[in-house]
Structure formats: C-alpha cells, structure tokens
Nucleic acid binder design. Structure first.
Length: 443
RNA sequence: GUGCCCGUAGCUCAAUUGGCAGAGCACUGGUCUGUGGAACCAGGGGUUGCGGGUUCGAGCCCCGCCGGGCACCCCA
C-alpha cells in the first residue's frame, strides 16, 4: 500500500469534483475576457532556455531547465508573458494590432512549496500588445476587477503603482543604479514592517539615513489619487522620469473612472514594487485582505520585452491571475457553487434480463441531449444504485422494472425529496427536459 | 536556495521512560430479493512515508532521501 508513488513536490492531482469547480471558474474567466474582446491563444509548455533567460532577474534560478534528446537546452515556461512576447515576435505579420489575447495554462517554477505556492500552477492572463495608450492599462485593470468580482472574491483590491515613479525614487535618494532594487524591496514591506523597519532595512543595505527618509516621505503621501499626483509633481518637479510616470498615472486613473470601474476595487499604492525585470510602466497587484494567501495576481506594462525577440519594439501591458490561489480561496470560503457531478440523471438496471431496456432508455436520453449515466456495476440491487446516485449527487434516477416495462412506464425519482412519478416511456425525455428547465429557473 | 516544525489504516487522530500498533469516521457484507442519505451486527484493511544506523528490542533515538507546512528570499 505504502508503495504507491507520490506526485512530485509542489504538484497536485485533482479529483472530478475539484475539476468541475476549476472548469466552472475557468469558463467564468473566459467569459469575462471575451466580453472585453480578448481572444484565446496557446503556446508550448517547453521553450528554448534562452527564450526564458534574462527576463526575470533574480527569479531566473527558479526556471525548470534540462536537456532534451538532441541536447537542446530547454525550460518549462515560468509565466505566460515571456511566451507571449516570443509569440508576437514570431507572428507579428499575422496579427492585428493592438493585439488582445488571453491565455489560460499551467506554468512551472522550481520554488519551495508553501500554502498557495506550487511548482505547477495555472495562470489566467489577458494582455494587449502594440499600444502605449493608458487605455490598454485601464482595460487590463478593469478586466481583472470584473474577473475577480465574477467569482465573488471578497475584499480584493488592485494596487497600482508606476515603474517610472519607483525609478525616480531611487534618483531622489541619490543611490547607484544597482541599489535601486534594494529601495524597492524595502518600501514594498512598509505595510508589513512599518516605517522604522523600512528605514532599518534600507540602512542595513547601505542606503544613507537621509536618503532613506526622503524616499519614505515620498511614498507616505496619502490622499485622493489626484491630490497625491499633484503633491508628487511638486516634490519631484524637474525629474523627467517622475513627470512621465505621473502623467501616465493621471490618464490611467482618469480612464478607469470614465469606464465606470468600481473604485473600491483599485487603489494607488506608491509602495508597490514588482520584482520582474521586464516591467517598464504601470504595475499592478491584486490582493484580498480576507484571503490571507498573498497576491492573487500580478501585472504591468512591459514595453521592451517583445523587442528583445524581434528587434522591433512593441509596447505591451497585461495582467495575470493565479488560478490555484483563487481556487484555494474559493474552496476555503465556499464562494462558488458548482455541481458535484456532470450527470443529470441515472438510469438504473433492474436485473440481467432488463439491461436491454435500460440501455435503450439511456441511449435515447443521450440523443436527446441529457447528460445521462447508467449504472454499470455487476450487482443490480436498487439500493446500491440509489446509493451510487446519492453519493455522486445525481439529482434524479429512472427506475424501470418488469412492472414498468409491462405497462410502458418509467419511474422518475427525485433524489432530494424521494418523490416518485410514473411517466409514459415515450415522454421520459421531455419530462426530464422540463424538470431541468424548472431547476434552472429556480436558481 | 537558507532556517525550523511535521509524516501512524482512505480521512481525523491515539499508543506510559524505547517493550505485542489502536479508535472514530469511511469502506465491504448482512439485518433488508423493487428504493439512497438513519440504526444495529460482522468483516477487510498497516513492513508506522522510503532507506540505512544505534539497541536484546525502534512508531518513538540518529543520518540520508521523499512528501507536507511555517518564517525568510521571492512570488501567482
């Protein structure tokens, strides 16, 4: 017994009941993406290693890599964004720009697993390639809000910052370029470790105290986004990097407002830092205060990434949701109801002599479009078959024994109540259809 | 990748200082030969995650590996 092999660290199996819930969530996301005009693509799970390297900074060490037969150096994709950039570079003559695509697929990271952190997990990405307009970024934030709302995610907020603002902070602090990430890492922890903690962290990494305080003062500005931008513009006047960032952020927030995006679901967060090297403009992170599972998704603008593959720069922006974390929250908090089985009805078998009658009935129902199971076990006691339906959550059973066959009837049993009704054999499909219509109307 | 905690039946957990591996639920069969989700009775199921070591003797102590979790790092 204990000999059964395990699955690899950080990877999981899914039972049918879980898959039905996953598929339900995925089709909800697909619906939201398509409502915004995003269209599906797929790319290979494996890429040439050199396609993946040099894009993620420090995280590069988490790429699964190996040699295939033929000794090519290859890697499992780390996200869906870099494959998209490669995809666009390969197919740019066949695409219509701005190109909007969504991509829902597994990605791999050789990270140390933890709650909400897996080595294989699914991402749900929506991106727009080929425009620098903040309209695209607003679309991305908005589609995110709609997707998370559609699955009843509680208390989620999209935090918004801008890479150019982050860069200008480092300029203001007067630290060398290679110290920039240190500052970003420190301020990103503000909510967690407080001002003193941030100051301490910066100083222990060689940032002078007065520079650290200047940075901290800037990111501590609070108020309505418009007021914060005004204040930042005053304090960072003359810094061209900051001015570009502020101006883009103003139009992003303006567009979100005009789109009617729910402002309780997005917020300006000057401390938000995103680690991936390829971000160049607005950056986003979706978090749920109620979920306690870290971020639900990360996103941002990456204007230089496609150019790394094609030579021809194509600006791009997009978002990514982590399905496993969302799925874990949904299960934990019971946010979404999905059926526990695909079957709408179970046809029972009375005994060896009536198998033919039952098979004929189930075939008829299937041709009529009803998801119908037939009990295929070797023992025919009704008890066993009702138990099977009950455990799987199949809502109705059809019973046809010698008496019913004799009189041309079928018994339709409602499993939730135990109510039974005799229906003329000829009308069974229609009776089931109308019962299903009634079920749907009741929802 | 670093540091720490954990691993006993399908699940949740017991097992004095190292001394014959157990319970509840679940499962199978029966009470019940045309009716599930209840009850009662009986039964099956384990080389204690895997491999080594110490010991007269290891579920318990030591080492390695596999898997789970927490804190870092980082991230979805």
């Amino acid at each position: 017994m204990a000999r059964a092999p395990q699955v690899l660290k950080g990877m999981r199996d899914f039972l049918p009941e879980q898959m039905l819930l996953r598929q339900h969530v995925l089709s909800t996301f697909r619906g939201v993406f398509e409502r915004y005009g995003f269209e599906p693509i797929e790319t290979p799970v494996i890429e040439y290693l050199e396609t993946l390297t040099g894009k993620y900074g420090e995280d590069e060490k988490l790429i699964y890599s190996f040699q295939d037969r033929g000794e090519r150096n290859v890697g499992l994709r780390y996200d869906l964004t870099v494959p998209l950039a490669r995809f666009v570079a390969n197919h740019r003559n066949d695409l219509t720009f701005p190109f909007k695509r969504y991509h829902i697929a597994p990605v791999f990271r050789a990270d140390r697993p933890q709650r909400g952190r897996y080595r294989e997990f699914w991402q749900c990405d929506a991106d727009i390639v080929g425009t620098k307009s903040m309209m695209a970024d607003a679309e991305v934030v908005s589609v995110w809000i709609d997707a998370l709302s559609a699955i009843n995610m509680p208390g989620f907020v999209v935090h918004i910052n801008h890479r150019k603002l982050l860069m200008s902070l480092a300029e203001v602090a007067g630290v060398p370029d290679d110290q920039t990430p240190t500052i970003h890492r420190a301020i990103d922890k503000l909510a967690k470790i407080g001002e003193d903690g941030v100051l301490k962290e910066m100083q222990s990494n060689g940032i002078p105290e007065d520079a650290a305080r200047r940075v901290l003062d800037l990111v501590s500005i609070t108020g309505e986004p418009g007021e914060v931008f005004d204040e930042l513009a005053r304090r960072l006047a003359g810094n061209s990097m900051a001015e570009e960032g502020i101006s883009e952020m103003r139009s992003l927030f303006d567009f979100l407002d005009k789109m009617g995006a729910d402002s309780s679901h997005y917020t300006l967060d000057l401390t938000l830092a995103r680690g991936l090297d390829y971000y160049t403009g607005p950056v986003f992170e979706a978090m749920s205060v109620d979920a306690n599972i870290g971020s639900l998704g990360g996103a941002g603008r990456y204007d230089g990434l496609v150019g790394m593959f094609s030579g021809e720069d194509l600006p791009a922006t997009g978002c990514s949701l982590g399905l496993e974390r969302i799925f874990d929250v949904i299960q934990e908090k019971n946010l979404v109801a999905a059926p526990s089985t695909v079957s709408k009805v179970l046809v029972t078998v009375f005994n060896g002599d009536t198998i033919g009658e039952s098979l004929a009935l189930v075939g008829e129902l299937r041709r009529a479009g009803v998801e119908s199971d037939i009990y295929s076990g070797e023992k025919f006691d009704l008890r066993r078959q009702l138990q099977y339906a009950n455990r799987k959550g199949i809502p109705r059973t059809l019973i046809l024994g010698p008496d019913e066959i004799q009189t041309g009837q079928v018994i339709v049993r409602e499993m939730s109540t135990g109510d039974q009704q005799s229906v003329d054999r000829a009308n069974v499909a229609e009776a089931i259809h109308s019962a299903l219509r009634a079920d749907r109307a009741a929802d």
